[in-house]
């Protein structure tokens, strides 16, 4: 195995593990951006993650049902662009608080000056 192949395989393996559990964050960010129906959430996630995250509609529905069940997401029905009624999902108060707390504890770490510099800095070795 040459060095490039090795790097590519290691990167894929790491990304696969890293992405697990990220879908929730992306869905919540999509809903923080505003009420959306499933296709809009899917588009948001894929576009904003620069297509590093992909998700099936069925998987989104399943996740949204769980979030709704635990009270962090809810929906209201509204007319979609193409006519039929759609479920527009949004974050509840609890959902907003949960996302804020999660971001404060897990995402904002990366915005600390020292870490930011380390991320920016290219490894010269």
């Amino acid at each position: 195995m040459n060095k490039n192949n090795q790097l590519s395989e290691l990167l894929s393996a790491w990304e696969e593990t890293y992405k697990k559990g990220q879908l929730t964050l992306w869905i919540f960010l999509a809903l923080k951006d505003g009420k959306k129906y499933v296709d809009e959430i899917k588009t948001f996630v894929e576009e904003q993650s620069k297509h590093t995250m992909t998700c099936e509609s069925q998987s989104l529905y399943r996740n949204l049902r769980k979030y709704q069940h635990v009270g962090v997401v809810d929906y209201e029905t509204g007319v979609g662009n193409k006519g039929p009624e759609r479920k527009y999902y949004f974050l509840t108060k609890l959902g907003h608080k949960l996302l804020d707390n999660f971001i404060n504890r897990n995402i904002n770490l990366f915005f600390n000056k020292r870490i930011k510099n380390l991320i920016k800095k290219e490894d010269s070795k």
Binding site: G21, H69, V70
Partner: peptide, 12 residues
């Protein structure tokens, strides 16, 4: 579990 859902499966 939380609300009947396995804690490890809610945000999988």
């Amino acid at each position: 579990s939380i609300y009947g859902l396995n804690k490890e499966e809610i945000f999988e």
